[in-house]
Design a protein around this nucleic acid. Structure first.
Length: 373
RNA sequence: UCCUGAGUAGCUCAAUGGCAGAGCAUUCGGCUGUUAACCGAAGGGUUGUAGGUUCGAGUCCUACCUCAGGAG
């Protein structure tokens, strides 16, 4: 993996390129989330063609925990890795399953060694350790892997946050050690000019700046190729999210990619990119789209939320956003999209998701253009 | 014409003679490293009509209306 910075803007924002085994990603980048090896409701070739410049989604996420449970990482490895399995030839990042420790909290028990999960699918018991997460991610074979971490709930006391963070650090070291010892097990990476999978660290520390600082420093000691900021947008006010990101960026290496996990609304990803965040991912464009919320830009450039279910769109012959260049806006009216949604037609989920993803990708294209200027 | 059964929210249906409810639909809201085509809220009623019994009737009685099935 090679990260090249082209230019840095006054506010901290950076324009760069991330060269990964499956291709180059222009940063700052937004990464659509494809948890179960599918960006829900959107087909892969459509993902590739999105965006104002036609570049499409340059990198997407998949999830370790979900693919481990179904269909199983060993099955995917036998079929040649997650890229071949899902027909996606561009870069991919796998999340470690750490977030599921948080989001499936009622189904798990955390110990220093790892996490005992109960499958949300069939109740069966499973154990996830840093080593196991690495094994699963190596088998999946994404371009970028994440260390196994614990995402602390909000609100959390200082002591709880500090203890959780310490666990995350221990797990990060174990993740790295196991990854370094086993990373050559992926045969299909050998063919790619020496490019191998990369492992990113994850800064935790809740909403406590001093813990964030300590977390960043401890992770930097591991000398990983990239660092993520995790544990944000879990219910805290937006100003706090922004503050934690801005502060944490100060303590991370300037020459390595910085990734904020799980954010955000369109105005947030724009804001964070301008602060110097290089990578972001979020389920919002796809989930909100499937739930009838689409984003649009008003004439003054501000971002508006549009609930396509609303009656006021029933006879609205215009597109979601006349200035949008996506497939959905090029062809379909608000009235039709509302009809599809209200009628429960699956196409509604697809068209809304396509629009929202395009909106996010186009937003990042604008930011990149601004940062390069 | 007679017999039987059924009429309760827009729809499908609950409710010992004791505060008239649910699901769906409608309208609106929420969604941030996906347990999510999901979750939540609101509006919506002269219980077919008219009488009667009762402290009290969606519920019991009488007549009528409508619908379904059956008989002739």
């Amino acid at each position: 993996m090679i990260f090249e910075l082209r230019c840095k803007a006054a506010g901290g924002g950076r324009r760069g390129m991330l060269k990964l085994p499956h291709g180059t990603v222009q940063t700052p980048v937004f990464m659509p989330v494809g948890t179960a090896a599918s960006v829900k409701a959107v087909e892969q070739s459509v993902l590739e063609r999105m965006g104002t410049d036609g570049a499409g989604a340059e990198i997407i996420l998949a999830n370790t925990y979900h693919l481990y449970l179904r269909p199983g990482h060993e099955l995917i490895a036998r079929l040649g890795g997650v890229h071949r399995f899902m027909g996606w030839q561009r870069p991919m990042l796998t999340d470690s399953g750490g977030f599921q420790v948080f989001s499936l909290s009622s189904l798990r028990k955390v110990t220093p060694d790892g996490v005992e999960f109960r499958s949300h699918l069939d109740g069966s018991k499973h154990f996830f350790s840093p080593e196991h997460s690495m094994d699963v991610q190596i088998a999946l074979g994404a371009d970028v892997m994440m260390v196994f971490d614990e995402c602390v709930e909000h609100p959390a006391t200082y002591e709880r946050t500090r203890d959780s963070m310490a666990l995350t650090h221990a797990w990060a070291r174990r993740s790295r050690d196991h990854f370094e010892a086993n990373k050559h097990r992926v045969p299909w990476f050998a063919e790619r000019d020496g490019h191998a999978q990369s492992l990113f660290g994850i800064v935790q520390g809740g909403m406590y700046a001093d813990l964030r600082k300590e977390s960043a420093e401890r992770l930097v000691e591991l000398d990983l190729p990239g660092y993520a900021i995790g544990g944000l947008a879990v219910g805290e006010p937006r100003e706090v999210t922004r503050e934690m990101i801005a502060r944490t960026l100060e303590w991370l290496p300037k020459d390595k990619p910085r990734y904020v996990m799980g954010v955000g609304y369109p105005d947030e990803i724009e804001e964070y990119a301008k602060l110097g965040v290089d990578m972001m991912d979020c389920v919002l464009p796809t989930r909100a789209g499937r739930h009838g919320l689409v984003f649009a830009r008003a004439e003054d450039g501000s971002i508006v939320r549009m609930n396509i279910k609303r009656k006021e769109y029933a006879e609205d012959s215009g597109p979601i956003d006349a200035a949008c260049g996506c497939m959905t806006c090029a062809r379909y009216s608000r009235a039709y999209l509302r009809h599809l949604f209200v009628a429960g037609e699956p196409l509604a989920l697809t068209l809304n998701s396509i629009h929202n993803l395009h909106f996010y990708l186009a937003t990042m294209e604008r930011v990149r253009a601004e940062l390069a200027a």
